[in-house]
Amino acid sequence: MRKNRNYFLISLCILGLLLFMNSLLLGVHNYALSDFFASQSQNFAIIWQLRLPRVLAAAIVGALLALAGKLLQTVSNNPIADPSLLGINSGANLALICGTILGVPFTLFWRVSLAFLGAFLTFLIVFLLSMTRRGLSPTRLILSGTIFSGFLNGIAYGISILTKSSQRFRNFLVGGFSGVDCKQMWLLLILLLIILGLTIYFARDITIIGLNDQLSQGLGSRIVLIRSVAVIIVVLATSGSVAVGGNIAFIGLGIPHLVHYFDKRDFKHVYLEIMCFGSVFLMFCDLLARLLARPFELPLGGLSAILGGGFLIWYVYRQSEAVVA
């Protein structure tokens, strides 16, 4: 049994590498393997300075969003939790839009700070709305998150229509990686390292708070501390992803469920698989977005939602008799 599961992770990694290579070479123009090393040619520059940041950004954002989804599902004991359901995406979005309207410089530093601020404030409000006298209520978390994110989205759309700037925010609203540069790639890489480090360090603790509160407290877990760590990881991962790639649906909700189909173990055993699967999925979507309607690009957010939605319908259909206990 254990061997099979390792094969799953290894095959995901191989699939990811293959996709990564293909994503670098295929697109509006296709390149040959030899262009990787032809340091004098223009193709070399395009591959390393335009394609690489873009593909790497897709891979990292896929991993981060999938992990964020699984973390939220684990700490809220709720299988349908997702950063976008909790309004974190919308908060980051709205902060970016407001910042731009108010004339905040559109540099990487400001984008990331704004996205982080928006994500964190939103999560704080949603979190406070879901607190009851007996602690965090998972049902209230989803309800208040859904309502509040709808509210924020309404404001965001309103602003972009009133200021006739919806074209400029197209990337936030539909999501996508065209125009990602090296700086953003480095930012995501650093973020990935931090988040991976935190997750590996706290993996066992996070697994334990997947039980109900009193049970995990009895096992020696410091629930408030661990839940805060998990929430910080979620907010970091989501806001970084939104700042670079805009709104990308499905990954956080769907990927953990798809991985669950192959590997039913608990958080500490599956989070790497989930991150790899998220990477593979988003790289695949990004490649399709570039290839399907050449020379035009399809909106990535929409594509991932359609593909992922299809996946999820199939998954729910296959699982129709199984119930989460």
């Binding site: 997947g210 109900n212 009193q214 049970l215 989460v324």
Partner: peptide
């Protein structure tokens, strides 16, 4: 500390819940 306490004292609350697939 929380862990030291858990080594001295184990508790099974009413209606314990865990993910069903583990």
């Amino acid at each position: 500390s929380a862990k030291k306490r858990a080594q001295l004292l184990a508790c099974l609350p009413q209606n314990p819940q865990a993910p069903g697939d583990i």
